[in-house]
């Protein structure tokens, strides 16, 4: 560098200054996003925490904010979790197993792959319209829990299939060869060896998909979940409400008290989601240990 002119040296300094500036800018942007998450959570907690008590959890909605509660919505959401899990997990994992373990690589399986990728990108509100036309109207299931659960299952099916396929693909071929060489059939190999090995990965994907279903609002509005439900659903054919619907209803009212109720509802919703994610991590850690 001794022979470089003064001009070149100045250029070099400027280039490095620009580089440092750029690095700092990127860091600031990233940390701002993290900061934003903190602001969001702190805001909601500050707004809603004072309303969050047993009375809130154990009351039905009311026109009087002090008496309003989230019982029906919370129970509705718990029903939804169970029903969607019962419908979407078996179907989604079965489809993933078929595509990875049984299907011949051909036109049809390629078509199904492209189709699943595109379904994952369809706006949730379109699934709501599908649910309204098929489950509510055509199968005459009315505005019931089961209509909502079936709609949500269709919505998260692509996510479950994609995640499960990735988990199944991670299982080493040697495990399959070992089982097959000992005379196991395709399905025996799949059921007793591939599935247990892929289980932690599948569970993680499934629970993430389920938590997406729990937070979705638009499809439930379409199929007609109500925001004013003063009873608990007794079975899958009953009408219902769910946490995001109740939050939407409260948030869209102008009074400040209802906005704070919405915040309290959001805290409950986020706790449910957090518990589900914690379960996913717990299951993953536990099964991973057992396999070692």
């Amino acid at each position: 560098m001794a022979f470089s002119s003064e001009q070149e040296q100045r250029n070099l300094v400027a280039r490095h200054r620009r580089s440092r500036l750029f690095a700092r800018l990127c860091a600031v942007v990233t940390w701002s996003s993290v900061f934003l998450l903190a602001v969001l959570l702190v805001r909601v907690s500050l707004d809603g925490l004072s309303w969050l008590d047993w009375q809130f959890l154990d009351s039905f909605p009311s026109r009087i904010p002090e008496r309003a509660g989230i019982k029906a919505a919370l129970v509705g959401t718990l029903w939804m979790i169970v029903l969607v899990a019962l419908i979407a997990i078996p179907v989604g994992v079965s489809a993933a197993l078929y595509l990875e373990e049984f299907a011949k690589r051909g036109r049809l399986s390629r078509l199904i792959e492209v189709n699943i990728a595109n379904l994952a990108g369809v706006p949730s509100i379109v699934y709501g319209i599908l649910g309204l036309a098929i489950f509510v109207r055509f199968f005459a299931l009315e505005r019931s829990l089961i209509s909502g659960a079936l709609t949500m299952s269709l919505l998260i099916l692509p996510v479950i299939i994609i995640a499960s396929r990735e988990a199944i693909r991670m299982v080493p071929m040697s495990i399959r060869y070992a089982a097959l060489s000992l005379g196991a059939t395709r399905w025996q190999t799949t059921w007793s060896h591939v599935l247990p090995s892929a289980f932690p990965g599948i569970m993680t994907g499934v629970i993430l998909a389920l938590s997406r279903a729990i937070g979705e609002t638009a499809p439930l509005i379409l199929i007609g979940a109500m925001s004013f439900v003063a009873f608990l659903p007794q079975g899958p054919m009953d009408s219902f409400t769910a946490l995001p619907i109740q939050i939407y209803d409260w948030a869209s009212r102008p009074q400040a008290e209802f906005q704070e109720l919405a915040a309290a509802g959001i805290i409950v919703l986020l706790i449910v989601l957090l518990l589900m994610n914690a379960t996913a991590i717990y299951i993953r850690n536990k099964t991973e240990k057992r396999q070692k």
Partner: peptide, 9 residues
Amino acid sequence: GIPTVVYGY
């Protein structure tokens, strides 16, 4: 992963 209705709020 935060539900969109929360962003609306």
